[in-house]
């Protein structure tokens, strides 16, 4: 008799597990895609610098410490929203590499002059090919790349204090210290 009682509980347990998954699914934003490049090396590239089209920046020139890779454009309102916060991160000694994504060079340079330049380097991805290689599906996006050149995290959407504290800092602390000032 006791054995059949425990057998009766099995469907109930399965049902509760099922409910839990459905419940979790409710708070899932289907627009957020997980990057497939996590824990993979940054794609190779060789692109013009934003500020000088005669300078070609290779992927080998990326910092040898961990750094942030920020995809931005002047046509993207959220990029304007996060720009000030990127400046703050720069002041904290964090290296940020910019990817100017499918933008106009003059407008982008003017934007940096007007709003400040938080980037150590900006590459000019006019055709969006680096964007495709990175799996970019919108701007802004921010990647965390470690000292070995592996992508550790991708955040799609504007960077702010909450995202930085909850998503980036814990990962950076796990990786060791970030940025030039060490």
């Amino acid at each position: 008799m006791k054995k059949s009682n425990t057998m009766m509980a099995v469907p109930l347990v399965i049902f509760i597990v099922f409910l839990w998954f459905l419940w979790k699914g409710l708070s899932n934003d289907p627009r957020i895609l997980e990057s497939v490049l996590i824990n993979k090396p940054l794609p190779q590239f060789s692109i013009e610098s934003l500020k000088d089209k005669n300078i070609i920046i290779q992927s080998e020139a990326m910092p040898k410490t961990s750094y942030l890779l920020n995809v931005w454009a002047t046509w993207c309102p959220s990029c304007r929203a996060e720009h000030q916060y990127l400046g703050k991160l720069k002041q904290q000694g964090i290296s940020i590499i910019g990817i100017n994504y499918k933008d106009e060079r003059e407008a982008a340079i003017a934007w940096l002059q007007q709003l400040g330049d938080p980037y150590q380097l900006v590459v000019y991805d006019e055709a969006g090919q680096l964007g495709i290689d990175l799996g970019v599906y919108g701007a802004p996006e921010t990647y965390l790349v470690d000292a070995l050149g592996k992508i550790r995290y991708r955040h799609a959407g504007p960077m702010d204090e909450t995202v930085w504290q909850s998503q980036f800092l814990p990962r950076i602390n796990r990786l060791g210290k970030l940025g030039g000032k060490q």
Partner: peptide, 22 residues
């Protein structure tokens, strides 16, 4: 990837255009 319920053929998003070209 941008407008998730459309395929590359239907979508007008700039990204879809780039991927079509690709």
């Amino acid at each position: 990837p941008k407008c998730q319920n459309q395929n590359l053929s239907d979508s007008n998003a700039p990204l879809a255009k780039d991927l079509r070209q690709k």
